[in-house]
Every structure is written in structure tokens, then in C-alpha cells.
């Protein structure tokens, strides 16, 4: 049941990425290129997503519990520390180099571009390294 629900929500999320243009690294890199061929589209992607999530969360989190799980699992960390800033900076560097963040990279797998097929396994390797480092 949970598998099917997640599959459908992943489909919805991925279709959103495709329709919005966020799955195209060229569009992402142009959004980040303020001094060159700037394409402001991605501000509308984030704007649309944040506005819907902001109002949706207000309704949903006012309820006692989710429909299919015993409780809401919200992030417990609140400290703004070196790890948060360093991780975000490293992520930003990779995002600026390749134009892919995790969602669009996974959504692009089916197009089987060589760059994507190199990027995704490398991304999983990086995640594995961070998980083991955080555990140590």
C-alpha cells in the first residue's frame, strides 16, 4: 500500500519537474547565470511549490496524524551549524557544475544521457560517503 502511494506521489513530483523545466540542466544553469543568459523560470517553480506546500502544510499539520502513518515525522534538528552550511555549500557547488540536483537527476535517468548515467551513480556514492561519515 505504502509502495503504491509513494509510487504515485513520485510520479506526481516527477511530472512537476518535467512540466516546470527543472529536469533540464540547461534551464537550471541559465537560472543560476544571473550575469549571462538568465532564465528566471525556476523562481516560478520554487515559488509555485513553496506557496502550495505552505498552505497545504498548514491544513495537514493541523490534523492529529497522517492518514496512513501513526505520526508526523518532522526534522528534529534546529541548530544552524557548520555541518548544515558546509553541506549546503558542497551541494551548491555540485549543482552549479552539473545543473542537476537529486530529483531532476533521477527523473532524467530514462533518457539515458551519458552525463546522467555518470552523475547518478556518483551521487549515490557521495550520499553513501556522507552517511558513513555522519555515522562515525
Amino acid at each position: 500500500m505504502s509502495f503504491i502511494v509513494n509510487l504515485l506521489l513520485g510520479l506526481l513530483f516527477g511530472v512537476g519537474l518535467v512540466i516546470s523545466g527543472m529536469a533540464d540542466p540547461a534551464k537550471v544553469l541559465n537560472f543560476l547565470d544571473l550575469a549571462g543568459t538568465w532564465d528566471p523560470s525556476l523562481a516560478f517553480v520554487m515559488g509555485g511549490a513553496v506557496i502550495v506546500a505552505f498552505f497545504g502544510y498548514r491544513v495537514v499539520l493541523g490534523r492529529k496524524r497522517p492518514l496512513l502513518a501513526p505520526d508526523f515525522q518532522l526534522p528534529k534538528r534546529s541548530a544552524i551549524d557548520g555541518r548544515l552550511v558546509a553541506g549546503a555549500a558542497i551541494f551548491g557547488l555540485g549543482w552549479g557544475l552539473g545543473g542537476f540536483c537529486p530529483g531532476p537527476a533521477l527523473t532524467s535517468l530514462g533518457f539515458a544521457e551519458t552525463g546522467t548515467l555518470i552523475f547518478v551513480p556518483a551521487m549515490f556514492a557521495g550520499m553513501l560517503a556522507a552517511k558513513w561519515l555522519a555515522r562515525a
Binding site: 534538528r77 558542497i90 551541494f91 555518470i118 551513480p121 557521495g126
Partner: peptide, 14 residues
Amino acid sequence: IAGLLVGFGSVYGS
């Protein structure tokens, strides 16, 4: 390199 950085940074930075 971009993939390694995105994977590492996104998990390390939660």
C-alpha cells in the same frame, strides 16, 4: 565530480 558533490553535500547538509 558534480554527482559526488551533490550526493555528499545534500546528505551531509540534511
